[in-house]
Each structure stands twice: as structure tokens, then as C-alpha cells.
Write a protein that binds this DNA or RNA. Structure first.
Length: 232
DNA sequence: AAAGTGGTCAACCGCTGCGAG
DNA sequence: GCTCGCAGCGGTTGACCACTT
């Protein structure tokens, strides 16, 4: 038996949403919720299929969506999570509050994939750094790329004898942080900021990892990563 | 200034998993 | 246990924009 299409094709609008349609959808969901996407467009008076409405809401209109460029931390988180989970965009998105699976998928295909591929090509890549901190950032990111997943880094570096403690310490701290950080639920309002959203992200790290300026943990990781790279 | 090229991102398509009957 | 309908997911497309030649 052939399943009926998700919506009748005739009479339903496709393509970019207008501001008027957005307004109607937002108003309707604010008043009635979205318990039934299929019935929603009819009830709201929209000439769209339920799928289209859902997508528009989830990826664009939801109030807790964090707009703007991805921060470096977010990009590195995506790289790390992708190395662990593969193309499970919705799972990755669930761990990056305010970001959508579609957005993450796009950013992966547009730049992160190339970044990772470039690094794994020969192990090292010529990169021009605008500052010393950028250089630390690059070194740190090498540790978490798919070519150097944490488990692989561990096994490779683990043969280093006396230097094991450096690796183990770094990984322990990262793992500890990872478990609590990624599973922690952040209130949506903390993520719905405007131009200062990066600051909000930085300030959202668990308190135990947070230093005087909120970035001591990351700085420590970068410094340790730099030290770590001497041994590999 | 115009044409060509590449990057970005919103949106669509088709498939899958799951719950209800 | 089976079928159906639905929401959700990941892959892909295409329009738009910026940059280069």
C-alpha cells in the first residue's frame, strides 16, 4: 500500500516564509502550542504543510534559538561530538543549547568538515595564527579532531611512559568536564542573547571549572595541550 | 562594471521509528 | 502481530550573497 503524501500538494505554498506567515505561526503556537503539527497549518490559517511549519518553528522561530556565528567553543564541541556520535545532528544539537540540528549540519558541511579533513590529511596543517591564543586554540583542537579522537590520543600517547600523566590528567579533566557540562541543562533564556551570546556561553561553564575570568579552564586545557604536543 | 565562482543557509524530500488502534 | 499515521531525522537542493577575476 502506498502511503499518502504528508500533505496535499495542491494549494499548499512552498519556498521561503514571509514575515506575515512567521507572525501567524508564532501567534498560533504561543496561544495553542504545537501538539499536532499536521493539523496546525489548517487551524492557524496557513497554506503550508505541517512539516514545513514544524521546520520553520524548530529551526528559526523558536524563542530560545541562539542566532549569530558559532563561537570557537561551539565549533570545537561539534567536532568532538561528531567524532563521538557521527551524523547524529539532533543529538549534537541537544548538547548545544540554542542551536538547531540544521544549523549544526550546515556549519559542519561548510567549514568544520574541511577543518577536520585538513588536519587529518598529514597530521599537521600550515595555519596562520593571528595571535598566540589562536595558536593554542589550534593545538587544542587537534586533540579533539576525528583523526585524533580522545581515545586514539590516549592510546597513542599512552605509550609515552613518563609523559602519561600529562595525557591522563588532560583527558581526565576533559572527560570530567564533558560529563557534567554536556549533560547539564541550561535555561533557554541564558542562551537567547544577542551580540553578547559568546560571553553568555563562556559564563555558562560549570562553576568548578570557572576561574576568575571564566576562562581559566580553557586556558589550562590549551596550555596543557601545547605541553602535550611536545610528546607526540 | 560585468561575469564567474564559491560559500552560506533556509527549506524541501524521503526515510525511519514509534505509538495507537 | 500488523497496519497506519505521525513526528522527527538526515541528506540534499537551490536561492542568495560575497568575493574574485
Amino acid at each position: 500500500m502506498v502511503r499518502a503524501p504528508c500533505c496535499e500538494k495542491a494549494g499548499l505554498k512552498k519556498g521561503p516564509w514571509t514575515t506575515e506567515e512567521d507572525r501567524i505561526l508564532i501567534n498560533f503556537i504561543n496561544q495553542n502550542g504545537h501538539d499536532n503539527w499536521r493539523a496546525l497549518p489548517k487551524r492557524a490559517g496557513l497554506l503550508r504543510c505541517g512539516k514545513s511549519c514544524r521546520l520553520r518553528w524548530v529551526n528559526y522561530l523558536r524563542p530560545d534559538i541562539k542566532r549569530g556565528n558559532f563561537t570557537w567553543e561551539e565549533e570545537e564541541a561539534i567536532i568532538k561530538l561528531h567524532a563521538e556520535l557521527g551524523n547524529k545532528w539532533s543529538v549534537i544539537a541537544a548538547r548545544l543549547p540554542g542551536r538547531t540540528d540544521n544549523e549544526i549540519k550546515n556549519v559542519w558541511h561548510t567549514h568544520l568538515k574541511k577543518r577536520v579533513a585538513g588536519k587529518s590529511e598529514k597530521g599537521t596543517v600550515k595555519v596562520e595564527y593571528s595571535s598566540e591564543s589562536d595558536r593554542n586554540v589550534e593545538k587544542y583542537s587537534e586533540l579533539s579532531s576525528p583523526g585524533n579522537s580522545l581515545s586514539e590520543v590516549s592510546s597513542v600517547a599512552g605509550a609515552g611512559g613518563d609523559n602519561d600523566f600529562v595525557v591522563a590528567d588532560l583527558l581526565d579533566q576533559w572527560t570530567e568536564m564533558g560529563e557534567s557540562f554536556w549533560s547539564e541543562v541550561f535555561p533557554a533564556e541564558e542562551w537567547s542573547g544577542g551580540s553578547d551570546s559568546q560571553l553568555q556561553f563562556e559564563n555558562s561553564f560549570p562553576a568548578e571549572l570557572d576561574g576568575e575570568d571564566g576562562n581559566d579552564f580553557w586556558r589550562d586545557v590549551f596550555n596543557r595541550a601545547e605541553e602535550f604536543t611536545k610528546y607526540i
